[in-house]
Simulated assay, not measured.
Amino acid sequence: MFKEKVSSLLNKALEEYPSLFLIDFMVGGDNAIRVVLDGDEGVDLQDCMNISRAIEHNLDREEEDFALEVTSAGAASPLQLPRQYKKNVGRKLKVRTGEGELEGNLVEATEDNITLEWKAREPKPVGKGKITVQKKQDIPFSEIQEAKVILKF
Rank of each mutant, 00 (worst) to 15 (best):
V43A: 05
T71G: 12
E41S: 12
S142M: 02
Y85W: 07
G127I: 03
L59N: 01
D60P: 03
K86A: 14
Q46T: 09
R96P: 06
P125W: 04
G29S: 14
I114H: 05
V126F: 13
T71I: 09
R83L: 04
K135A: 15
L116T: 03
D138M: 06
G104P: 14
E143S: 08
D112F: 07
V36R: 12
P125I: 01
I55H: 01
Y85S: 12
E146Y: 15
A147Y: 09
N50K: 08
G74M: 04
K86M: 13
N113Q: 08
G28L: 03
P123C: 03
P123N: 07
L59T: 00
E108F: 03
L20K: 01
Q80V: 13
V27E: 04
H57G: 14
E16Q: 10
K86R: 12
E69W: 08
E62W: 05
V95P: 01
D112A: 10
Q134R: 09
G74P: 00
I51V: 11
K130P: 00
L81Y: 13
K130H: 06
L116W: 02
G90S: 05
W118V: 13
L93W: 08
R91I: 11
A120S: 06
E111M: 02
E111G: 03
K87A: 09
K12M: 10
V89H: 00
N31T: 10
Q84V: 15
N88D: 04
H57C: 13
V126C: 05
N31R: 11
V27S: 09
S19H: 14
F141K: 02
T97K: 14
